[in-house]
Design a binder for these strands. Structure first.
Lengths: 162, 162
DNA sequence: GGATATAGGACTAAAAAAGTCGCATTTCGG
DNA sequence: CCGAAATGCGACTTTTTTAGTCCTATATCC
């Protein structure tokens, strides 16, 4: 399986949990343990994932007995990118698209700029896609709109206006 | 660095090599050794990468002394997805989007369909993007066209026609 | 005060990616 | 024909990353 485009387990757990919490009409917060049991997720790991989501201000945590997690915003106001960054760190296609990079190909590299554009495109994608939109895919009749801008249905370039 | 969206070294090497070969006006094939030296890539690894590209019928190999590799098609007729698959195997967002999967969350999973759609979208992307289009990003004035279909510049859903 | 939570550091285990080695085969050129 | 230079490829090791475990501290409810 190709690792580019692959979700980490932590990312999966985060998406499952957020979806789960959103589906509760409950006022009571959902505990990591109850989510972990429901979806057969290792409880310790899920704890860490929820803590990461808390630090990223995606959920709020209530400590102590009867504690747990609540969403801080609706799924419509959460984008895939922030969830991925919260649990796995910054999103980069290649090290050279980050700030402090070093790469053996750096000097002669002939693909740096294209890679940067790819990075920008994918970053734009994950930071534009709300979890609500993503969740609506579930009934199978909806698709993510794909840009079909040229006749052959491929991606195209456009020139920047100056 | 987030691994979703991250290119493997092998994928980078493949893209560098294809770009390099395409830039030669030479009739003579380019050897793995000379590419490896030019871009500071471990020669053994590059050999494997080129062999994978050969098996995928993206390049043709010429054996023996003065041998090497030539493109079988122009960059315009090569898409990112086939290069990624050639060197890293099938592209999947999560195991459950493949044929033979097993996952501990399978029974209760609440994100399977959304993940499948995400998979389909990204797969469509990488299999629509030609290396030529990607390469044209290099002068910094061109961008990959991003679908801006709703006012807030986000991705949207559309309903399937039946 | 005890049960049940979150918070989080330190650690181990497992899996995947990256790189190395060795050898067979092909072909060019002297 | 022989040697140099190339691809082809299996087996292996190393390194890095991901995944998971363990332990302890702290907060809150009853």
């Amino acid at each position: 399986m190709l690792h580019m485009l692959k979700l980490s387990k932590k990312a999966e757990y985060a998406l499952i949990s957020l979806q789960h919490i959103a589906s509760l009409d409950d006022q009571a917060p959902a505990s990591a343990r109850e989510i972990a049991e429901h979806y057969n997720i290792p409880p310790d790991i899920l704890g860490k994932v929820m803590q990461a989501l808390t630090r990223a201000e995606i959920v709020e945590s209530i400590q102590g007995a009867k504690g747990g997690y609540r969403l801080r915003r609706s799924l419509a106001d959460m984008v895939l990118g922030e969830v991925l960054e919260a649990v796995d760190g910054p999103v980069h296609v290649a090290p050279c698209t980050g700030d402090h990079y070093s790469c053996d190909q750096e000097l002669a590299c002939n693909i740096k700029q294209p890679i940067s554009r790819l990075q920008a495109h994918l970053q734009n994608f994950v930071f534009s896609l709300s979890l609500e939109t993503l969740a609506q895919c579930k009934d199978g009749r909806f698709h993510l709109k794909v840009p079909t801008l040229s006749e052959d249905n491929g991606y195209v370039l456009f020139e920047e206006e100056e």
